[in-house]
Simulated scan of single mutants.
Amino acid sequence: MTGAQWLEKVGDAMKSLNYQGTVVFMKSGQIDTMKYQHTVRNGVESERLTSLNSPLREITRKSNEISCLYKETSQKTETRHPIDRSFIVNLPAAPARLDEQYLLAVAGQEMIAMRPAQIVAVLPKDGLRYARKIWVDKASWLPLKVEVYGQEGNVLEQVLFTELDVDPANPPSDPEQAPVQDEHDTHQHVAQVEVFENSAFELKNWPAGFEKVFFIRNTMQQSKKTVEHLLISDGFSNVSVYFEEKGEKTIEGLRTLGPVNSFSRVIGKLQVTVLGEVPAETVEFVARGVALRDN
């Protein structure tokens, strides 16, 4: 099979199987070990991450609804995301369509969590996105390990199953959180998807293979400022473009935090920030392509 065919199998397995295990997340020098659970009921996906170390928290996704409960403070946040996004790995719906942007190569086999795994290398054909490898369980087609690499070949991010239990016939318990008591501090964040053409901005250029995914407007609770958010993606890499009114202190130029780069610029009285797990060149390229829409 080709690399694209392997990844299509992975996408199908992630959306249809019931499985659970222990996952280690490594990013920006931080290591987080969590219990992971995935179920599918009546075609609806649910995921749950439960931390094993402080700060103790439980993160649940049911389709596109995400909630996070901090057990030590009883604070709970709820967010409705415009799209379904896995906690483990982002995959394009049709990997073969990205053959002009990525080489999807079958690259040997290894043992991960005592399970035979096929390595699929995702190699960009330009300098505008990161390379990655995905270790695929040969028995279930599930991703056992994911690594994202910087332009110099260094590991920027890793997700690793240390144990995995797959049982399509007998799903684990439903990952529903216990009802939140009245004394819990709950914050809800719900934004409706809007048409980007109604924005005062336009995006004149972005990397080939990227597409507009959604556009929303959020009102910040403290400042009451409206922040517009456009997400573009090539399926593997997501880039967010934020538009807001310029504050007293403006932010301009490049910032880097681990695998995440951001580039900010000011257009008149407005602040634009482009952020994503992509090379610095990419966020600057997108930011330079933002302009005010002609009325």
Rank of each mutant, 00 (worst) to 15 (best):
Gln5Ala: 15
Val166Met: 07
Ala287Thr: 02
Ser54Glu: 15
Ser67Trp: 09
Ala280His: 07
Trp135Pro: 03
Val89Asn: 04
Glu244His: 10
Trp141Tyr: 14
Arg41Phe: 12
Leu7Trp: 05
Glu211Asn: 08
Ser67Cys: 08
Ser63Ala: 15
Asp165Ser: 13
Gly43Ala: 04
Arg48Pro: 02
Ala105Ile: 01
Ala280Arg: 07
Gly268Leu: 08
Ala178Leu: 12
Val40Trp: 02
Leu7Asn: 04
Pro259Gln: 02
Glu47Thr: 03
Ile83Val: 14
Phe236Ser: 00
Lys225Gln: 15
Lys249Gln: 09
Ser199Tyr: 09
Thr79Lys: 13
Gly11Arg: 11
Val239Pro: 07
Ala191Asp: 09
Gln37Phe: 09
Phe87Met: 13
Leu142Val: 04
Gln101Val: 08
Val286Lys: 12
Phe285Cys: 01
Glu65Met: 14
Gln192Trp: 10
Glu202Leu: 11
Ile66Glu: 10
Trp135Val: 03
Val274Glu: 04
Met34Arg: 12
Thr2Arg: 06
Gln181Cys: 10
Arg61Ser: 08
Thr60Cys: 14
Ala139Val: 07
Asn53Pro: 00
Val274Asn: 04
Glu245Thr: 15
Leu142Cys: 03
Glu152Gln: 13
Glu147Thr: 02
Ser63Phe: 14
Arg41Ala: 13
Ala139Cys: 00
Lys204Asp: 14
Ser16Lys: 12
Ala94Asp: 12
Asn218Gln: 12
Tyr130Gln: 03
Leu144Val: 02
Ala107Cys: 06
Glu252Ser: 11
Ala107Trp: 03
Lys204Leu: 15
Ala117Met: 07
Met34Ile: 05
Gly127Asn: 15
Glu110Phe: 06
Ser46Phe: 08
Ser74Ala: 11
Glu100Val: 11
Asn218Ile: 10
Pro179Asp: 05
Gln118Ile: 08
Ser262Leu: 05
Ala94Ser: 13
Lys62Met: 02
Pro175Gly: 03
Lys269Gln: 14
Ala139Gly: 00
Gln101Phe: 04
Ile134Cys: 03
Ser16Phe: 07
His187Thr: 15
Arg57Ile: 02
Gln188Leu: 11
Phe161Lys: 06
Gly289Ile: 05
Ala200Val: 12
Pro55Leu: 02
Arg129Cys: 01
Ser86Phe: 08
Gly150Lys: 03
Gln30Phe: 11
Lys125Val: 06
Leu292Tyr: 00
Val120Gln: 01
Pro179Asn: 01
Arg255Asn: 14
Val283Trp: 05
Ser67Val: 11
Pro82Ile: 04
Glu152Ala: 10
Leu98Gly: 03
Arg129Glu: 02
Ala105Cys: 01
Val159Gln: 07
His81Thr: 00
Glu8Asn: 10
Lys225His: 10
Asp167Gly: 01
Leu275Arg: 10
Pro143His: 02
Leu270Phe: 14
Ile59Trp: 02
Val278Met: 04
Lys76Arg: 13
Ala107Met: 02
Met34Lys: 08
